[in-house]
Structure formats: structure tokens, C-alpha cells
Amino acid sequence: MGDAPLAYHEFPILGRAYFLGGRASTSVKRVLGEAGVDEGTIQRVAVACYEAEMNVVLHARSGYVAVSVYADRVELVVRDQGPGIEDVDLAMTPGWSSASEEARSLGFGAGMGLPNIKQHSDAMRVESTPGAGVCLLLTFQRGGTAHG
């Protein structure tokens, strides 16, 4: 993209730590507020970031979220070390989930994570290496709205 971000932060995500889930997203939300990003954009980023964070918690060993704030947009990179996604198109299907029974009993694994992320972002790229991990790249135009 070329231009330098106005703000950049990284937050770690621990796999399997259900009870810590949401910590990274809460931090992202806070730094966007401090950077003066509008409430609507913050809300869209918060939803997408939470879903991406919980995917790492539920499926991977560890990961991180990096947030970059630009004058016209916010970018998120969520990268993990884990099993990866075998079939990204299948994983994008609303209602499809590979979450464990334990996770489902806690209210996760509704199969809405990736669809929610797509709906709340303006551009979404999933780079999956089965057996190694997933890298999710998301762009949010500042002042934009959710899709559908």
C-alpha cells in the first residue's frame, strides 16, 4: 500500500485460553478510540477482530493481531500457528464449523465467525497453509458501513 500508518500495534492471542478470549479485541478497540477513529468503524473492526481472535483461541496454538490505522482506513492482520483451514470456501459457509463439542457448549462454533468478518469488513483475504496456520488480512474504510 506504500503509505505509512498513523498508528500500529500488535497484541498476542493465546490458543485454547477461552477465558482470555476478547482481550486482544478489547485492546484493538481501545487503540482505535485513542487514534480518533469514528465509532461506526470501531464497531465493525471490533466485531471482525473478536471473531478472528476467537478463531485463533478455538483452533490454533497461538497467534497475534496487528492493527494499523491510516487516514482513510484501518487494517487488521490476524496470524496464527495452528492447523490452518483445509477448505477456505467451505469454512466461509454460514453455519459450517469445525469447533469441538466443548467449544460449542460454551456458545462458540456457530459457524458465523468468517461470515461475520466478511460482513463487517470491506476487504478480506484468507491465506491458509494446512498444518502451519492462517493469516487473515482485513481492511475497513473509515466511515464505511457493514455489508448485508
Binding site: G22, T26, A46, V47, L106, G107, F108
Partner: peptide
Amino acid sequence: HPNIVAVAALA
């Protein structure tokens, strides 16, 4: 579980 608080705060 604690995650409900994260969801409530983020939403």
C-alpha cells in the same frame, strides 16, 4: 464464562 463479558463490552 468470562467471554460473555468480552462480547457485551465489544457490542
